[in-house]
């Protein structure tokens, strides 16, 4: 049975009817046109679908849309509302990504890390992104980019 949910998506109120078995990732991508969260593994293991729920990163592929009723969701689209963030600029400068499939999730996770801990060391960065798989790069340029912004601030 469909239920109406209300939540905040990137600062804007959203009202939508969902089935209890619809996943947040699918609702975001297919029904609301928010395409930055990616469908990688679909089982919580790769981090490509990461979004922020009330400021904390979660995996939208293992979250039911109905669970975010009344909550606040932020995707990459929301983070870059006012242009690229320093973190994104740093990723660009370091050539951190190749295909880019992991980039939105990586950016969400690194953003959460820097909000919580503005000056992480390399081990902390590695730990934070341990659940974000990248199949192209070997991670070093991603880590360097995150460490770089953490030094600037």
């Amino acid at each position: 049975m469909k239920k109406e949910i209300n939540f905040t998506l990137n600062g804007n109120p959203v009202k939508i009817e969902v089935m209890p078995n619809e996943k947040l990732l699918d609702v975001l991508r297919d029904r609301l046109g928010v395409k930055s969260p990616k469908h990688g593994c679909g089982r919580g293991e790769c981090g490509a679908c990461s979004v922020l729920l009330n400021g904390k990163s979660i995996r939208s592929c293992i979250t039911l849309a109905i669970e975010v009723d009344g909550q606040e969701i932020t995707t990459l689209e929301g983070l870059e509302k006012n242009g690229m963030t320093d973190l994104q600029k740093s990723f660009l400068q370091h050539n951190s990504f190749q295909c880019g499939f992991c980039a939105p999730g990586m950016t969400i996770t690194a953003t959460e890390l820097l909000n919580k801990n503005p000056h992480p060391d390399e081990e902390e960065v590695r730990e934070a992104i341990a659940g974000n798989l990248c199949r192209c790069t070997g991670y070093q340029n991603i880590i360097d980019a995150i460490l770089d912004v953490s030094k600037k601030e």
Partner: peptide
């Protein structure tokens, strides 16, 4: 346990 995105939930 898993990763931070999982541990948040």
């Amino acid at each position: 346990i898993a990763s931070t995105g999982v541990r948040n939930r």
